[in-house]
Design a protein around this nucleic acid. Structure first.
Length: 557
RNA sequence: UGGGGCGUAGCCAAGUGGUUAAGGCACGGGACUUUGACUCCCGCAUCCCAGGUUCGAAUCCUGGCGCCCCAGCCA
């Protein structure tokens, strides 16, 4: 068995070159730097797999560093959920848990150094004025009237900012670079702002907080990160990232490399839109199984291995992309096909009576838990005169290629007997409410001694033994491939959740721990819901359907 | 109209001057089947456009075109 090699990509090639040339003494250190202000989603998974994956493969390590520089938006609850999600995905940061806030004192010292060197100054313009002075994409900015304060005054003012003498917004510390730079990030970027807010890690120790640009590179340097991987929108920030490292006495020299983030078709990924879905009640919380959040996917029943697999398959480049959600579904099916035990359950029940089966009799039939993997063993299924079959598996007037049950037709009940439909019972509206069949006792187990074939095999459940359950059928949250591009709320799929309250399932299923995947044969993969399932009233989530070539032909007609 | 990126199939993506232009997903066809599942076969591109360099170009040069990002005291 040769393990499929992880496909290479331009970042791994850069690392290979660095290793060849002896850069960084052969060390490879990466980092995943989430801001604890929201839940992780499948897009983050790509970055997590990339950073932790590279660290693993190159014998280095990956720091989990909370980028906690904005206390007004961040909280401990997010820190917790982020850690859980990363662990669930299958990664371990070991000893390498860090916080940008661990470096506040050092960052402050560096800011003082820059100020002392005349490369930073305290600006007292208002936020609006700073914006006006910044210029536009095509016009250069103007220098602030405070730009040429003396070093002494800047040092004094900055110290007093830290000391809490000033109100929020009254002053900022800025890098003195170039107000005419074509790259807006170089037009004297703000390094520190005053925020009288308490921080989840440092409490009230600080009332000034460093900006992203003044934090990221130096934090990387402190941690001896060798390759600092981030998404494309930070490409314009790289000159600034480098400027700070060039102008500060830092302990190492990290390199920032940008790659394109993951986008998935039929979903939205931005924090703003996800939050709106939750706030406006389009979904039932961040962990709604329809959400692309990691908590949502976990509850839906997506195996972490499938998510890792998908991240590996999509590759790493700098090209904007939209990954077909069908790829994710394929990865989920592949993983689940190999791992999930098979059981039977009927979603939309239709009563079947075996008219020649003795009243009151029952028996146990053996069924494989996984036909392709005998090691998973067998279980016994109760069989009796009254069963439930799937409504879709019976048609009174079937089209040509329908080879399930119909009047006069014989089909196999999976692992049980061949049955032939001899009669139907209808209600006042002409709706079929019950089918009558005869069974052939010679076909016990599902095989015919005389060698005759049946075209269809359908699933069933013994009526008196079945357990009633609620089943939630999930579908794509949006009905257009790129909801991001439009008024996304208008494209929410009204059928993204269908709740069935009269499903009948094999007794064994309800004992499964929440999240344990299983396959209802011929239907799809399901798991017990972690939030709403109760002993007496089980709730099952459909993770994904089985591929269905019959559905493609077009049901009926 | 300033700056930074990107352009290989419906969606991803290898390819780094000489290959019949990998592979995956999707799609279409077929085989097998006690899940219309799984599995297995088969099919599916001349590389944004136009010039140029070269014996030879997806790969190099020039000029276009298209798309994305940047004007938070967010990250």
């Amino acid at each position: 068995m040769t393990e499929a090699a992880t496909p290479t990509n331009f970042i791994r090639q850069i690392i290979d070159e660095d290793l060849r040339s002896g850069k960084n003494d052969g060390r490879v250190v990466t980092r995943f730097p989430p801001e604890p202000n929201g839940y992780l989603h499948i897009g983050h998974a790509k970055a997590i797999c990339l950073n932790f994956g590279i660290a693993e493969d190159y014998g280095g390590h990956c720091n989990l560093r909370f980028d906690d520089t904005n206390p007004v938006k961040e909280s401990m609850e997010y820190v917790q959920s982020i850690k859980e999600d990363i662990r669930w995905l299958g990664y371990d940061w070991g000893e390498h848990l860090r916080h940008a806030s661990d470096y506040f004192e050092q960052l402050y010292a560096w800011a003082v150094d820059l100020t002392r060197a005349g490369k930073a100054y305290v600006d007292s313009l208002s936020a609006d004025e700073i914006r006006e002075y910044r210029g536009t994409l095509t016009e250069p900015g103007r220098e602030s009237p405070y730009r040429n304060r003396s070093v002494e005054e800047n040092l004094d003012l900055f110290a007093r900012m830290r000391a809490g003498e000033f109100a929020d917004g009254s002053h900022v510390l800025r890098a003195k670079i170039d107000m005419a730079a074509p790259n807006m990030n170089m037009r004297d970027p703000v390094m520190y702002r005053i925020l009288h807010a308490s921080h989840q890690m440092t409490g009230d120790a600080w009332c000034i907080y460093p900006m992203y640009d003044f934090t990221q590179g130096q934090s990387d340097a402190i941690e001896h990160v060798t390759h600092s991987l981030c998404s494309l929108e930070f490409e314009d920030h790289r000159p600034l990232y480098d400027w700070f490292l060039d102008n500060l006495d830092v302990p190492s020299r990290p390199r920032q490399i940008e790659f394109s983030r993951l986008n998935l078709s039929y979903t939205v990924m931005s924090k703003r839109r996800l939050k709106q879905l939750v706030d406006d009640g389009h979904v039932n919380g961040w962990d709604d199984p329809r959400m692309p959040t990691l908590v949502g996917m976990r509850r839906r029943g997506f195996p972490p291995a499938a998510i890792r697999d998908m991240c590996e398959r999509v590759g790493i480049t700098k090209k904007d992309n939209v990954i077909d959600v069908a790829l994710l579904e394929n990865c989920v099916r592949e993983e689940l096909d190999a791992k999930a035990a098979r059981v039977m359950g009927v979603l939309r029940p239709l009563r079947m009576v075996i008219v020649n089966y003795p009243q009151g009799q029952e028996e146990a039939l053996e069924a494989a838990n996984h036909p392709q993997n005998p090691e998973m063993g067998t279980r016994s299924l109760p069989f009796s005169r009254e069963l439930y079959i799937e409504r879709d598996d019976f048609m009174e007037d079937p089209p040509k290629k329908f080879f399930r049950l119909a009047p006069g037709r014989e089909v196999r009940l999976r692992y049980a007997y061949f049955v032939t439909c001899v009669d139907v019972v209808k209600d006042a509206d002409g709706e079929v409410v019950e089918v009558h069949c005869t069974y052939d006792p010679e076909t016990r187990g599902g095989g015919a001694p005389d060698g005759r074939k049946v075209k269809g095999t359908i699933h069933w459940v013994s009526a008196p033994h079945a357990i009633r359950a609620e089943v939630r059928l999930y579908d794509r949250l949006f009905n257009v491939p790129s909801p991001d591009a439009q008024d996304f709320v208008a494209h929410i799929n009204p059928h993204s959740l269908e709740t069935l309250d009269a499903a009948h399932i094999e007794p064994s299923v309800v004992d499964a721990a929440p999240g344990t995947p299983f396959q209802f044969e011929r239907l799809g993969y399901f798991c017990v819901d972690s939030a709403d399932s109760r002993a007496g009233t089980p709730v099952l989530n459909r993770t994904v359907t089985l591929r269905d070539s019959w559905a493609k032909i077009g049901k009926g007609a």
